[in-house]
Computed example of a mutant assay.
Amino acid sequence: MVEIVVILCAYLLGSIPSGVWIGKLFFKTDVREHGSGNMGTTNTFRVLGKTAGTIVLILDITKGTVAALLPIWFGLNIHPMAVGIFAVIGHVFPIFAGFKGGKAVATSAGIVIGAQPLFAFLILIFGVTLYVSRMVSLASIVTSIIAAIASLFLGDWIFATIVWLAMIIVIIRHRSNIERIKNGSESKVPFGLNKTKK
């Protein structure tokens, strides 16, 4: 029974639409009505800028981390990732936003960091890639791939399996972004390296 409650809590945490709430509360803007129409970190950076994007990034990472820590806090014999993945599902299909959510990058990173704190280096990978490319989508994809590769060296097959599953979700959710990156039409954030260039 406790396990079911914890899993439900993880899903509800993941369902919190950080981008929507931050946009409406502080910017009087629904990010779903602009840019790609997505509620996640990528579109928040694009529509509302660096400050809002960073706040949403932190919130989405945090809800994933907390979800992964729930079984530890409750002393349950469940792998943190097995619970954390429900936060990812909640982010992609949020009950608080009509089941139309984000691309799960930050929340996936959050559950990985919650289960394996050493993987906090992923935040640096994301930041550097974002600064150099000015594309949140590319930074997201690169970070998820590096996380998946790194997971193979831990000897924890449950952790690795779910990280690879999360990577696949991230890549599938970024299919349209990948096409735009290929043809050079992907939107860029208004900060970072060579920000004055088109």
Rank of each mutant, 00 (worst) to 15 (best):
W21L: 15
T42I: 06
V92D: 10
P117A: 01
D60M: 06
I141F: 02
K188N: 04
K50E: 04
V92L: 12
L122H: 11
I123Y: 10
P94D: 07
A104F: 07
K197I: 02
M81A: 08
I16R: 02
S18Y: 04
A139I: 04
Y11P: 09
M167G: 04
L124K: 10
V170T: 00
A52N: 09
I149S: 05
L48Y: 04
G101S: 14
L122M: 12
T129M: 06
W73Q: 04
I146P: 09
V142F: 01
N43L: 00
P17C: 11
T62E: 12
L69R: 12
M81C: 10
F153K: 11
V92W: 07
R173E: 04
V189G: 04
P71D: 12
F93L: 06
G84N: 08
S18L: 03
P117G: 07
M1E: 14
G102T: 14
I55F: 03
N194C: 14
Y11N: 11
V105H: 01
F121L: 14
I95A: 15
E186R: 02
R46A: 01
G35W: 00
V163M: 08
I72A: 03
G110Y: 02
A147W: 08
M1A: 15
T41W: 02
V88R: 07
T143I: 09
F45R: 02
V83C: 06
S144N: 13
F96T: 10
G101V: 11
G75S: 14
G110F: 04
S176W: 11
F27W: 08
K63C: 06
G75H: 12
K188H: 05
L59H: 09
S137N: 05
K103N: 00
E179Y: 01
L70K: 08
V136M: 02
G35H: 03
A104P: 15
F45H: 03
V6C: 10
K28M: 13
I85L: 08
F27R: 13
I22Y: 03
G101Y: 04
I61L: 10
I113V: 14
